[in-house]
Design a protein around this nucleic acid. Structure first.
Lengths: 154, 154
DNA sequence: TATTGTTATACTCTATAACTATA
DNA sequence: TATAGTTATAGAGTATAACAATA
């Protein structure tokens, strides 16, 4: 039992994660703004590209996006002609998602912009630290729980 | 120039950060819920404790909390008797913040709960990786920019 | 009865901009 | 003119729950 609370914000992993997520988000959103898509839409497109033909719900779960917010994202992407929402004959409840050719092009451009921004943001870390960071974040993400979270980032 | 976009979400640092921030936030918010404070209020209290007597704005900047949202947090903490908002004779625009004795107690309990939750969340990582992760996050946070971010976490 | 997709609602967070009082 | 704190407002995100269609 310590005599007093000595913790600083810099030792608070949640605070660091939230602060960096906001900072990275601001920079990367800016980087893809000219493509006319949001960062969430980029995430959805990435997941659709990784496994085309899946249902909205499957993509939503993989991307950790709420299913009702998924509707808005898919609506916008479909309206812009970047994504197809096709009925599935085997299970008529499901709409199979896939990218159009234009969607593939926009995703490729967005991915490049995001990666470039990320490289700059991570540039303060030596390469070995960068790899270690990514591996640690991935290991933690594998265990991440989403119990629903309506609180602020910070 | 690659033939196609091969990126997965698991390689996207922003997505990992945002996902983990939400997951950690959910768990830690739950851990301090019984103390009647939010995670943001905990962050504010931590910063006030680290440097008592500072103005609201100084604390807001250190905690990366918007100054208008700071008002709400301080209002609630003051109403609960956890924090003092005292006029500063030298500059009468400033309200110096400090924790009450009860505030110190609540903060100590919250800090312990948060640290305990964080230890469990980080348990999947070996100790050396945990230290490296913290150091990398701190290095990145030192360079973090807050340009204002109205986009979603994910 | 359970699941997919959709819609509606209420609430919170956030950005922005005004406003006051001081400096 | 600039700063600290406050307030108001509008917009966006989110949780929740309902709902229709299908399994």
């Amino acid at each position: 039992m310590s005599e007093t609370t000595a913790t600083t914000l810099a030792d608070d992993v949640h605070w660091l994660l939230a602060r960096l997520a906001r900072s990275f988000g601001a920079v990367e959103q800016e980087a893809i703004a000219e493509l006319g898509i949001t960062l969430r839409e980029y995430v959805v497109m990435t997941e659709v590209h990784a496994g085309p033909g899946r249902s909205q719900l499957a993509v939503a779960r993989a991307a950790a996006v709420d299913k009702s917010m998924m509707v808005t994202a898919v609506d916008r992407l479909e309206a812009r002609g970047l994504l197809l929402r096709e009925p599935q004959p085997t299970d008529r409840r499901i709409r199979a998602l896939s990218l159009t050719d234009e969607g593939q092009r926009v995703l490729a451009a967005a991915a490049q912009a995001v990666r470039s921004a990320e490289m700059q943001l991570l540039a303060v870390l030596p390469q070995s630290h960068r790899t270690a960071l990514l591996e640690s974040l991935q290991a933690l993400a594998a265990e991440a729980v989403d119990t629903g979270y309506d609180a602020a980032c910070i």
